[in-house]
Nucleic acid binder design. Structure first.
Length: 418
RNA sequence: GGGGGAAUGUCCCGAGCGGCAAAGGGGGCGGACUGUAAAUCCGCUGGCUAAGCCUUCGUAGGUUCGAGUCCUACUUCCCCCA
């Protein structure tokens, strides 16, 4: 792979930007992509009401596919989610109701509409749901037509299975079958949409290859596998988690401001990689930003935050977040666009206890935590450290109509009365 | 079917002679240093306007002045024999 020279725009982009981990046949896939015949899919679970940053990498791959003349097929796992992918170790996953799955699907669709153009055109994305075919399967028919093509011997030798057996860990029958369903999806998508490639995280390699294998036995054209590296931050943390949980790609689950901050706070060592993976900036521009050293790298981080936020929330929201950040951190002014919590004028007149105020602002989970943060010097009102936990906020504390509550150096909320 | 073991602070792992708001770690949050970074060091990590009170150790009972700890039943998971 090291000496492979892609001729297609698609693979060139994927390789130079670091999306590529493994591919079953680079030459073959390259030819298909160059001929404009590449239709590829990635499966998404419907276990959550929206997608978060962890899913951004596969989304970007689909987007690149579309940009370079291919047809992206995000597949909703509406069927497989009803069973629940148990690969996530011991945790017995709760079975989601069909309604919940449908709701989740809607949320996920909204995310995709920001990244892909859907429609009937040649490179327009389509979004099928494997419930369409999986729920209609008849067990006997499935065994006869599909099941006989699976070699248990082969599956036993796959890493995902082998490791479990070696470690004497439980491997349930359903889990063993999950990859069969996924393999079947691949074949079905080939029949329905002419899909010839499946992409996914590196942990999906085995499942994808199983699908290729099944396709060969069931008479599909040659299928391809392409995986991306598993993403962690430079210091080895899982990507996309913050104090308040997952970083969602939907404004009402993670505000543009928080989203911008998430990228702004990236580690130095991640900036270049993230610019390549999570923005569409040209490579020479990224090279210029990546060359910045020391404190200058903060400029690169701002660009990263701007671009990444613009993709999900739009350019305007990104610029507003950037401006809010500039005022807050560079000028030290309380930007009016900071997250705001309102309380009634009556409450304000009566006076609000500091502890309660911070709880209401959502900066701390309980008054107990507020007390602890005060002891540790973590709470500030209008930039002045809170010393007395019995303190009371009154209308007199308003500055330009708001009281600025801060937790640490980065989290600020404006308290307003109405 | 028979035998043995395990469930702990609702983020995770994990110690726990009958006096326990419960060791230790990871993670997280805050502070210091910096650049809204990393690394490092320090503090915090059940609830309640709190010298006190309240709720926590799989579930339900019981023994005890007092139960995470002992007893009984139940639930779930794991292991061994068949």
């Amino acid at each position: 792979m090291a000496d492979f020279r892609p001729k297609s725009e698609f693979l060139a982009a994927l390789i130079e930007r670091g999306y590529l981990h493994q591919c079953s046949d680079l030459e073959g896939l390259d030819a298909k992509a160059r001929a404009g015949e590449l239709i590829a899919y990635i499966g998404f679970d419907c276990t959550a009401p929206s997608l978060h940053v962890g899913s951004l990498l596969p989304i970007m791959m689909l987007s690149w596919l579309q940009k370079t003349g291919g047809k992206p097929v995000p597949l909703m796992g509406g069927g497989t989610t009803r069973v629940g992918d148990p690969s996530g170790k011991d945790e017995a996953r709760k079975i989601l109701s069909i309604e919940a799955i449908e709701e989740n699907k809607d949320g996920i669709k909204r995310v995709f509409s920001k990244f892909l153009k859907f429609g009937d055109g040649k490179t327009d994305a389509v979004m099928p749901d494997n419930a369409e075919w999986l729920t209609k399967l008849n067990y006997i028919d499935f065994l006869r037509d599909v099941g006989r093509h699976f070699s248990v011997n082969r599956m036993m030798s796959m890493d995902s299975v082998k490791l479990r057996l070696e470690r004497d860990q439980e491997l349930s029958f359903i889990e063993f079958n999950y990859m069969c369903l996924q393999a079947y999806d691949f074949v079905e998508l080939n029949k329905r949409y002419g899909c010839i490639a499946q992409m996914g995280g590196s942990d999906q390699w085995g499942n994808i290859v199983t699908g290729i294998d099944l396709g060969r036995r069931m008479g599909t054209p040659q299928l391809y596998a392409l995986t991306s590296p598993l993403l962690t931050t430079a210091s080895g943390q899982k990507m996309g988690k913050t104090h308040s949980g997952a970083v969602w790609l939907e404004a009402d689950m993670c505000s543009p401001w928080d989203y911008w901050q998430f990228w702004r706070n990236a580690e130095d060592a991640d900036v270049a990689r993230f610019l390549k993976l999570f923005t569409f900036l040209p490579m020479d521009e990224i090279a210029r930003l990546a060359a910045l050293g020391g404190a200058e790298i903060n400029e690169a981080k701002k660009v990263l935050a701007n671009e990444a936020t613009a993709l999900v929330h739009g350019r305007e929201a990104a610029e507003q977040a950037a401006e809010t950040a500039r005022k807050t951190f560079e000028e030290g002014v309380a930007a009016d666009t900071l997250p705001t919590v309102e309380i009634s004028a009556a409450e304000m007149d009566a006076g609000v206890g500091v502890l309660t105020a911070f709880v209401q602002a959502g900066l701390v989970a309980s008054t107990g935590e507020a007390r602890r943060q005060i002891k540790g010097g973590g709470l500030r009102v209008n930039d002045a450290p809170v010393a007395d936990e019995r303190g009371v906020l009154r209308a007199a504390d308003l500055r330009d109509g708001a009281i600025k509550l801060s937790l640490g150096k980065k989290k600020h909320v404006l308290l307003k009365s109405k």
